[in-house]
Design a protein around this nucleic acid. Structure first.
Length: 335
DNA sequence: CTCTTGTGTAGTTCACACAA
DNA sequence: TTGTGTGAACTACACAAGAG
């Protein structure tokens, strides 16, 4: 049987007719006129090759075929109603959902404490599943449903039509050395900075970083004494040695509060572009209430970072969507 | 590609038949 | 007389085909 030729409304009419056992009552139930329901019954009789309802005096009675069809027709209608029902609402106070966030360890460090505070306060029942950034493109992971939201630097990823982006915050570079370091204090000139022994964070183990690239453009090089794959170990190394490092200011602020560290200004000639952190999500989850709430919570968690030195808030730009669950429609976001 | 025309379908109102 | 189902006539709408 070719289902494309079947009017779904006939199934609805069938269920109503078999339940009400009356053309008039079935018509009221479905919301059409009584003759229209009578015509629907005629079409059903023709399609199924069975009278379905036969008149017995003033009442209508079901044929054996109709008796057999009744529960199944009702089940199909209930399934259709469930299929076409609007999106389930998301109440952060009661939801037990798991929301998945893909983020670099830098983002996790600077954003998670505030985010977790918001989650604990507003959505205590949800589980936040934080996934590391992998070699796989973030857009693909979002597309595959591995993550609801991804945050990081996505400069290397070409914009995709089905993935939305919004700038969250920016961060600038500062120098970090142990408290009481004999040289690294205040603002260093370029040659003094280059002569220090540095710790380089290289997630992929490759030599050279942003700083080395900037120095090379000026015909200079620095001495890299130690290369590590994760930046979290760097503050501990720097705190207990004369090595220095160059890291993002938000991270430096976190560690100078915990370890005997001090920050210093980088030489002005070392013109390092601030790093922009971007939030991405797939079109598939754009209208999902839970994912919307998470995006709004992330924007709020990022607000103190966005308002800090060298940062820019999403509201400065044209992306206004992720403000929280109250916003019914997305604002303008870069795709 | 757009507009017009013809066709089919499903809705409505109105009228009527039938049974209690 | 009343309640119910059915048929006829008409209307609205969607869709396909053809013309320009």
């Amino acid at each position: 049987m070719n289902l494309a030729g079947i009017d779904v409304n006939l199934v609805v009419a069938l269920a109503a007719l078999l339940q009400e056992r009356s053309v008039t009552e079935a018509a009221k139930r479905v919301g059409i006129s009584q003759p229209a329901m009578s015509h629907a019954l005629a079409r059903l009789r023709e399609t199924l090759g069975d009278p379905l309802l036969v008149r017995v005096g003033r009442a209508m009675t079901l044929t054996p075929r109709a008796e057999a069809l009744a529960p199944r027709a009702q089940a199909v209608v209930e399934e259709l109603e469930a299929l076409l029902a609007p999106l389930p609402s998301f109440d952060p106070k009661t939801s037990r959902r798991t929301l998945k966030l893909s983020a670099t360890d830098y983002v996790q460090l600077v954003l998670l404490p505030t985010l977790e505070e918001i989650v604990s306060r507003e959505a205590p029942g949800i589980t936040l599943h934080v996934l590391p950034i992998t070699d796989q493109l973030a857009a693909e992971r979002l597309r595959d449903g591995e993550a609801d939201v991804a945050i990081g630097r996505f400069d290397h990823e070409a914009p995709a039509l089905d993935v939305r982006r919004v700038a969250l915050f920016r961060d600038t570079f500062v120098g970090v050395a142990r408290a009481g370091h004999p040289t690294a204090r205040g603002r260093l000139d370029l040659s003094t900075y280059a002569e220090l022994s540095h710790v380089l964070v290289s997630p992929r183990g490759t030599p050279g970083g942003i700083v080395d690239g900037a120095l090379a453009q000026m015909g200079l090089a620095r001495r890299v004494a130690l290369t590590v794959p994760h930046f979290l170990v760097v503050p501990h190394v720097v705190a207990s040695s004369d090595h220095v490092t160059t890291m993002l200011a938000h991270v430096a602020a976190t560690f100078t509060a915990l370890l005997p560290l001090t920050t210093f200004e980088l030489p002005p000639e070392l013109d390092l572009e601030p790093i922009g952190m971007t939030m991405m999500w797939h079109e598939r989850t754009h209208e999902d209430p839970g994912a919307r709430w998470l995006r709004g919570a992330l924007v709020r968690a990022a607000r103190p970072l966005a308002q800090a030195r060298g940062a820019r808030t999403p509201t400065d730009k044209k992306a206004r969507e992720p403000q929280g669950p109250a916003r019914p429609r997305a604002g303008l976001v870069t795709k």
